[in-house]
């Protein structure tokens, strides 16, 4: 246990000094703010019928930007964009250790393979928790300012709804991070891991979902892919899905919330366990 704690501390120390981590988190926060508030606010103020907000009445636009909509706005970008970014982080964290030779150096320090890899997972879990909480806090802050500026009642979202959103965010981002770590371990190369992971998350899953209508039986498979589960959980919590035209890409309504939650948790655990087994058994040559 103490070895796991020591490994987590060590990994946190090197993660928080890693420019790549802050770049990725900065990109995520920027994406979230731009798509939830930036474009919508410009469209609302100018009455401009842009491609993104076409046909949406201004009042609906404003409602989406108020604090009561934060539970949805925090998580709507997570199934596809936030997930992809955190998967990159996971893939880089695990994969670059092979190229840099740091896995070798770390393992010769004697924490044991399980503790060393567990420390990496634990440190990344703390990063994910930080990302979700920070996103929620920033969105609450920005939406409150907007409410005041637009002279709207400053009404906070129900705490239960906010907690649900945070939980869903943790599951979705956690699952994608674990997926990234697993690909990083499998490929032993950060570049290959990031490339393959992105192709899977952004292209292959979408293609499979497209093909599933044509092939019998494919639907069962494509309905239970990691991205589908992530999108369905977020969709079940009230975020507008991609099928609605003005919704966020990646948000789906394929599975119900309960099924999606269990499936996500199962994927998260499976990715972590398979990664752990690989690290434990494989030669580090």
């Amino acid at each position: 246990m103490s070895a796991l704690l020591a490994s987590t501390r060590a990994e946190l120390l090197r993660l928080r000094r890693w420019p790549a981590l802050w770049v990725l988190l900065g990109v995520w926060i920027t994406l979230n703010l731009t798509f939830v508030y930036g474009f919508n606010y410009i469209a609302y103020r100018t009455g401009d019928a842009s491609a993104v907000t076409e046909g949406v009445p201004p009042q609906a636009l404003l409602a989406d930007m108020l604090p009561t909509a934060v539970p949805q706005s925090v998580i709507q970008g997570m199934p596809m964009f936030g997930g992809a970014i955190l998967m990159i982080l996971g893939a880089l964290s695990a994969g670059s250790g092979y190229g840099w030779g740091t896995w070798k150096t770390v393992l010769t320090q004697g924490p044991g393979r399980v503790a060393a890899f567990g420390g990496t997972l634990a440190a990344l879990a703390l990063v994910v928790i930080g990302v979700v909480l920070a996103t929620a806090a920033i969105d609450l802050g920005v939406s409150s300012v907007l409410a005041v500026v637009e002279s709207q009642p400053l009404e906070m979202p129900p705490l239960g709804e906010l907690a649900e959103a945070v939980g869903a965010g943790l599951l979705v981002l956690g699952m994608w991070t674990a997926a990234g770590v697993l690909i990083g371990v499998l490929t032993k190369s950060p570049a290959l891991a990031v490339g393959l992971g992105l192709v899977w998350a952004l292209v292959v899953e979408n293609l499979l979902r497209g093909v599933s209508d044509l092939l019998g039986g494919m639907a069962t498979v494509s309905d239970h892919l990691p991205g589908t589960a992530a999108g369905s959980l977020v969709g079940a919590l009230g975020a507008r899905g991609e099928a609605e035209g003005d919704g966020t890409p990646g948000v789906l309504t394929v599975l119900d919330g309960g099924t999606a939650t269990w499936l996500l948790a199962a994927y998260l655990v499976a990715f972590a366990v398979v990664g752990l087994m690989l690290v434990r058994r494989r030669d580090l040559a």
């Binding site: 020591a6 490994s7 501390r9 060590a10 990994e11 120390l13 090197r14 000094r17 890693w18 420019p19 790549a20 840099w100 030779g101 740091t102 896995w103 070798k104 150096t105 770390v106 320090q109 004697g110 924490p111 060393a116 420390g119």
Partner: peptide, 18 residues
Amino acid sequence: GFYPYLSGRYNLRVMAHY
């Protein structure tokens, strides 16, 4: 094998933590 973006001292601190 060390983290290229960390200083020598920080690299050793990470390994000492481990």
